[in-house]
Structure formats: C-alpha cells, structure tokens
Lab assay of single mutants.
Amino acid sequence: RRKSKRKPPPKKKMTGTLETQFTCPFCNHEKSCDVKMDRARNTGVISCTVCLEEFQTPITYLSEPVDVYSDWIDACE
C-alpha cells in the first residue's frame, strides 16, 4: 500500500502594511513626515510637519511612499 502524500500548506502572504509616516532626517521627530503621491504629475512630495523641511522626487506608477522617503534619505547623504 502506498502512503498518500500531503500537499504542503499554502504560504501566507505578507499582510503587513508599509509605513506612511516617517522620521525626519533633519529634526529627528518620529512620524512627523507625510508623503503626498501626485500620480497625475508623477511626483512624490514628502514634508515634515515640525521643521517644515520638504522634498520632491519623480515617481512611477509602482512607487510607494517608502520609496519617496528613501529617495529623500539618499539625497541627504
């Protein structure tokens, strides 16, 4: 008699959501930077609500707010 092989359980999909508020690289306030994605103009704007620092970068249809933040961090270095 042959043993029946069980199929492995399906893999769980990533359910965690990406951050939309970030720590400002200038004033170091946590969750003080908000990202606005202007898909019509293909630009992402991130601004700090505390020190009013602002950064704008081009985006694509695949871009997420975390991509705008990482572009800002890269531009600071």
Score class of each variant (00 low, 15 high):
Ile46Lys: 01
Arg6Phe: 06
Phe26Ser: 09
Phe26Arg: 14
Pro10Val: 12
Ile46Cys: 06
Ala75Trp: 09
Asp67Tyr: 00
Glu30Asn: 08
Ile73Pro: 01
Leu18Glu: 11
Met14Asp: 15
Ser47Gln: 11
Arg1Gln: 00
Tyr69Trp: 11
Asn42Met: 12
Lys31His: 14
Ile46Val: 10
Val66Gln: 08
Asp38Pro: 00
Ile59Leu: 07
Lys31Ile: 02
Val50Phe: 09
His29Val: 09
Lys12Phe: 06
His29Gln: 05
Pro10Tyr: 03
Cys76Leu: 13
Asn42Lys: 05
Thr57Gly: 08
Val66Met: 13
Cys24Asp: 00
Cys48Phe: 00
Val66Cys: 09
Val66Leu: 10
Leu18Val: 10
Gly44Cys: 00
Asn28Val: 03
Ile46Pro: 01
Asn42Gln: 10
Val35Lys: 01
Asn42Ala: 13
Thr15Gly: 11
Leu18Ala: 10
Arg41Pro: 03
Lys36Gln: 04
Phe26Trp: 05
Val45Gly: 09
Leu52Gly: 13
Pro58Glu: 06
Glu53Arg: 11
Thr20Cys: 11
Phe26Leu: 11
Lys3Ser: 12
Ser70Met: 07
Ser63Asn: 06
Ile59Cys: 06
Lys13Arg: 07
Val66Lys: 11
Val45Trp: 09
Gln56Leu: 07
Thr20Met: 14
Lys3Leu: 09
His29Asn: 12
Tyr69Val: 11
Lys5Asp: 05
Cys24Gly: 01
Val35Ile: 10
Phe22Trp: 10
Ala40Lys: 15
Asp34Gln: 08
Asp38Ser: 03
Ile73Arg: 14
Ser63Leu: 03
Lys7Ile: 08
Asp67Ala: 07
Thr17Met: 13
Val45Pro: 01
Cys27Ile: 00
Glu64Tyr: 05
Thr17Ala: 08
Gln21Phe: 04
Tyr61Trp: 11
Lys36Glu: 14
Gly16Glu: 06
Cys51Lys: 00
Ala75Ser: 09
Gln21His: 14
Trp72Val: 02
Ala40Glu: 13
Cys76Pro: 04
His29Gly: 13
Pro58Lys: 13
Thr17Val: 10
Thr43Asn: 14
Glu53Trp: 02
Cys51Arg: 00
Leu52Gln: 12
Cys33Met: 04
Lys5Ile: 07
Lys13Tyr: 05
Val66Asp: 05
Glu53Phe: 02
Val68Pro: 01
Pro9Gln: 15
Ser63Tyr: 07
Leu52Pro: 09
Gln56Cys: 10
Asp38Val: 06
Lys3Gln: 06
Trp72Gln: 02
Arg39Met: 11
Pro10Met: 10
Cys48Asp: 03
Asn28Cys: 06
Thr17Tyr: 09
Asp67Ile: 01
Tyr61Phe: 15
Phe22Arg: 03
Lys12Ser: 12
Arg2Leu: 07
Ser4Ile: 08
Lys12Leu: 06
Ala75Lys: 13
Pro8Asp: 15
Met14Phe: 04
Cys76Ile: 12
Lys7Tyr: 01
Ser4Arg: 02
Arg2Ala: 07
Arg1Leu: 13
Val45Gln: 07
Asp71Thr: 10
Thr57Tyr: 01
Arg41Glu: 10
Pro25Val: 07
Asp67Asn: 12
Thr15Gln: 13
Val35Glu: 04
Ser32Glu: 12
Ser4Lys: 01
Ile73Val: 13
Pro25Cys: 12
Thr20Tyr: 06
Ser70Tyr: 08
Phe26Tyr: 08
Asn28Glu: 13
Ser70Ile: 03
Met14Ile: 15
Phe26Gly: 11
Pro65Glu: 07
Cys27Pro: 00
Pro25His: 03
Asp38Cys: 00
Asn28Met: 04
Val66Asn: 14
Cys76Met: 15
Cys51Ala: 00
Gly16Asn: 11
Leu52Trp: 06
Tyr61Asp: 15
Leu62Ala: 11
Ser70Cys: 05
Ser32Val: 12
Phe55Arg: 03
Cys33Ala: 10
Lys36Trp: 05
Asp74Gly: 12
Thr60Asn: 13
Leu62Ile: 08
Ile73Thr: 13
Glu53Ala: 08
Pro65Phe: 04
Lys12Trp: 02
Leu62Tyr: 09
Phe22Thr: 04
Pro9Leu: 13
Ser63Ile: 02
Ile59His: 01
Arg2Val: 12
Ser32Phe: 07
Pro65Val: 09
Ile59Thr: 11
Lys5Cys: 02
Asp38Tyr: 05
Tyr61His: 05
Cys51Asn: 00
Gly16Ala: 11
Thr17Trp: 03
Lys12Tyr: 03
Gly44Ala: 06
Thr43Ala: 07
Val68Ser: 00
Arg2Phe: 03
Thr49Val: 07
Leu52Phe: 11
Glu64Trp: 04
Tyr61Pro: 15
Tyr69Ser: 02
Thr15Asn: 08
Trp72Lys: 06
Tyr61Glu: 13
Pro8Ala: 14
Asp67Met: 04
Glu53Val: 06
Ile59Val: 07
Thr23Ile: 10
Lys36Asp: 03
Ala75Met: 13
Pro58Ile: 05
Thr60Gly: 07
Arg1Asp: 15
Pro10Asp: 01
Ile73Glu: 05
Glu53His: 05
Asp34Val: 11
Ser4Thr: 13
Asp38Asn: 15
Ser4Cys: 02
Phe55Met: 13
Thr15Tyr: 06
Thr43Leu: 10
Ile59Glu: 03
Cys76Thr: 12
Glu53Tyr: 02
Ala75Ile: 03
Trp72Met: 04
Glu19Arg: 11
Thr23Asn: 15
Thr43Gly: 05
Pro65Gly: 06
Lys11Gln: 08
Ser4Leu: 08
Lys13Gly: 07
Lys13Ala: 05
Gln21Trp: 15
